[in-house]
Structure formats: C-alpha cells, structure tokens
Design a protein around this nucleic acid. Structure first.
Length: 432
DNA sequence: AAGAGCTACAACCGCGAGCCA
DNA sequence: CTGGCTCGCGGTTGTAGCTCT
C-alpha cells in the first residue's frame, strides 16, 4: 500500500511535483547520477534532494539529460531509417531507437506521430497498413494484391543482396534500405557481382514496368512513384541509376546486349499472360488479376530456381591504374563461381546453403544452362496459371501488412523453409 | 492585438516482463 | 510457485509556442 507498482507516485504523493522540469531540478539529477549512478530509481529522488517520483526522474534522465542524446532535427537518413524500420517492426520504438544512436524511443515516437505519419499519407501510403491508399475499396483490394507482389519481389531480393560479397551488411544498412548504395560500394569486383547486378536490375525493371502498366492505366491511381520510392527509395534516386550505368560502362558492356536471356526480363516488363489492369476496361476482372499474379510468380519462380547461367565473360582487371576492367570472354570455370556451397541455384531466395557472409552462393553447372526467359514460350497461359490453386491461394490469402512480413512468409508455394528468411530471423536482426 | 486553433514535444500513465526472496 | 518490486515500453495527455483569422 502507498506505493504504485508502476513506479509512479500514488495518491498520497500529491506533494510530489509533476510537470515540466526546472533547470535546477535537472542540475540536481545530473549531478547526483554523475556522482553515484542512478541505482534504484525509486530511492534516487530522496537521495538527490528532488521532490519527484523515481519514474519521473528516470524518464527525465533517459529521454533528456543523459549524455550523447542527439537533439535537433532528424536527418534525411534518420527519417528514412525510421520509415523503413517502422515498416519492419511497427511501433517498436525502442527497437527503432536502437538503430538510431543518440535518439530516444520517445523522440522517435513523437517524430513519427507528428511528421512521418503525415508525410506517408501525402505519399499516398497508409502509415498503419503501409498500403497504398485509394478512395475505392475494390480498387484498393486490387492494388493491395499488387502491393503483395512487390513485397514478394523484394523478399527475393533482400537475401541476395545480403549475400553480396561486398555488402557490408548491418541491420542498420538493411533498415536504411539503401540496398545498393550501402554495398560499400557495390562495385563490380568479379563476374558474380556483375551477374548479381544485372539480375537485380532486371528484377527491378520488371517490377517497375508492371507497376506502371498496372497503375498508370488506372483511373483511380495510387501514387505509383511514391509507392516505388517508398519501397525502394535508394533505387529510385537517379544517382543509383547512374551508379548502375556506371558499373555497366566500367566493364565495357551494354547491359541490354549482355545476356540475351534476360532481354525479356529487363526490356519487356511483364511476363507472358500478364494483362494490364484498367478499371474502365473489361480486363479489370479478378480472374485477370489472379492470372497476372500467377504469371508473375511463375516467372519469378522459374528465374529464381533456374539453373545458373553460363558464366559471364571473364573480368580482367586492367593492368594500369585508372583504366577500366575488361570483359574478355566466357570462361566457364571462372573462379568467382565457387562450388563450395553445393548449390546449383543463383540468387535464389530459397537457398538453404546460403551464407550471408559468403560471396560464393552461386555455382556453375557443367552445361551452363542459360538463364530462362522470363517471357518464355513455355510460360503458362493465364488460364493454366490461374487454375493453379496453390499459387493463387498463396497470394490471395496472404495479408502481409509490411515488407517484413512478406520476407518471412514468401508466397511462393514452392519455397520451402528457409531459416535465414523467416519472420523471427529478420525480426531478431532488426530488434537486436 | 487578441483569441482560437494547431503543432510539437515533454511528461505522464498503466501494463507487463523479469528478477528475486 | 508466488508475490512484491523494479524497470522498460507504448499509448496518451498536457502545455508552450506558433500561426491564422
């Protein structure tokens, strides 16, 4: 009796001061903690000569007075980190704060509520559900399904990128979502890097093309660019496009001619069977939507689970400084395709042998099959794809609210358990 | 100039987990 | 095992300062 279990002052403590702290009180608190440490917060106010309850002292210290508190405006980088972490973990302010040195959970929470929420709303994104906002419910459902598709694509991208040889992967940089620029940099040091770059670029291109086809033809259009920018902000910036172009040019290749097997992927946009949706058009039917989803998933699956491509041309470092490396020709035994993992997959999201710290996550096969065409003559018809209940259910029954959830629950029914990509794995990394 | 409304942020509150006797 | 205590967390409230009318 007489004490609050929560640490706050009880009804008998009406003499205990509440409200804003005075500079004198601050000084007393800082002086005491500097000298003795905080010890028991409950006992502290009496010992420090403060007419406050312990909990008030603790909050004042942790949120305002303790050393290394960073005050002032949030930087662009911090803002992006908060947005992306919030997409991953939701209102776990302390977890978010752990990734922002000098910022307190309280400060981040306030910043979210007063600034970022509004910003996301202006971008056409619901800050709670992280879904694109539309005025029309049925349209919203369609757009949400496409949103899930985006998540699926991103879910297959993230682990590859983490596996990159030059990716200095920290949870912080993952949270920043600067999946390219944080690769320290993602310079092409070997053919595997080049392959990854091309693969990543191709997937992004198809994602963008599908989004554009889908959304820009709609009369009730969520902000496709805002959505894209939000999901992959670093890629959206022109500097990243420049970066990729630079990497291609640095090794003297025209990426459009580099791999004919990726032509359809990087140039064509949608997989076969994909029907651009337009609410004013008869094509905007649920069956078409399901077909599209199936077609896309099928294409992505084929790509992800394909045999690795013929080894790319050998990258030979230039002898002199300041000169570009050259691609001299194909060498199927190029060392960059390490065979230590025993996997025949390249860049797959389902590689149980994947080692995030290793660059050798792709291995050659003897016959060096080509990458399959995304737009393949063997691709399923919309009908046959839509008729695949497993694929359809995996999407339509899934209710991811965040990219993070999609990572943990890949809708691809042919993806099996993958500890490295399950829900708790990522959550642990972020909330570590 | 003054008051109403809005915004940003500090502080408060209650709940629950973990620890320990 | 249980109950008391402490602490951390997330939601909510209070208020100072700013803007608008």
């Amino acid at each position: 009796m007489g004490r609050s279990a929560s640490g706050w002052c009880d009804e008998k403590s009406s003499l205990v001061k509440k409200g804003p702290w005075t500079p004198e009180e601050d000084e007393k608190l800082v002086e005491y903690i500097k000298r003795y440490g905080h010890g028991s917060w409950r006992a502290l106010p009496k010992l420090a000569g403060l007419n406050r309850c312990g909990k008030s002292c603790r909050l004042r210290w942790t949120n305002y007075l303790r050393p290394n508190i960073k005050r002032g405006n949030f930087s662009q980088e911090e803002e992006q980190t908060i947005i992306n972490l919030h997409a991953l973990v939701g209102n776990k302010w302390s977890a978010i704060a752990n990734n922002l040195p000098g910022r307190t959970d309280n400060e981040i929470k306030n910043f979210w509520n007063t600034h970022l929420k509004k910003k996301l709303l202006q971008m056409g994104i619901d800050p709670v559900t992280q879904r694109p906002i539309t005025a029309n419910n049925s349209d919203n459902n369609i757009h949400h399904l496409y949103y899930l598709m985006i998540n699926h694509i991103l879910s297959s991208l993230a682990p590859q990128l983490l596996a990159s040889s030059s990716f200095s992967g920290t949870c912080g940089s993952l949270a920043n979502n600067n999946l390219i620029m944080n690769m320290n940099p993602w310079g092409i040091n070997n053919n595997a890097d080049l392959m990854r770059l091309h693969y990543f670029d191709a997937k992004i291109q198809v994602l963008r093309n599908i989004l554009v086809q889908q959304f820009l033809s709609s009369t009730n259009t969520p902000n496709v660019e805002a959505t894209f920018n939000y999901l992959l902000p670093s890629y959206s910036s022109s500097s990243v496009h420049d970066h990729i172009d630079h990497e291609y040019s640095r090794v003297n290749i025209n990426h459009n001619n580099y791999s004919p097997h990726l032509q359809g992927f990087s140039n064509g946009g949608a997989p076969i069977g994909f029907v651009p949706q337009n609410p004013t058009h008869a094509s905007a039917q649920p069956s078409n939507l399901n077909s599209n989803i199936s077609s896309l998933l099928k294409a992505l699956h084929e790509l992800d689970h394909s045999q690795p491509p013929r080894a790319p041309p050998v990258l030979v470092p230039s002898s002199g400084s300041g000169k570009s490396d050259k691609l001299l020709g194909y060498d199927d035994h190029a060392p960059f395709f390490s065979s230590t993992t025993g996997s025949n997959k390249i860049c797959t999201n389902n590689n149980n042998n994947r080692d995030r710290s290793s660059s050798s996550y792709a291995t050659p096969t003897d016959d060096h099959d080509q990458l399959p065409l995304l737009v393949s003559s063997a691709a399923p018809s919309p009908e046959s794809s839509a008729a695949n209940p497993t694929v359809d259910n995996s999407i339509s029954n899934t209710t991811y609210s965040t990219t993070f959830e999609a990572w943990g629950n890949p809708p691809d029914p042919m993806d099996h358990d993958d500890e490295a990509t399950n829900h708790s794995y990522w959550k642990d990394i972020i909330m570590e």
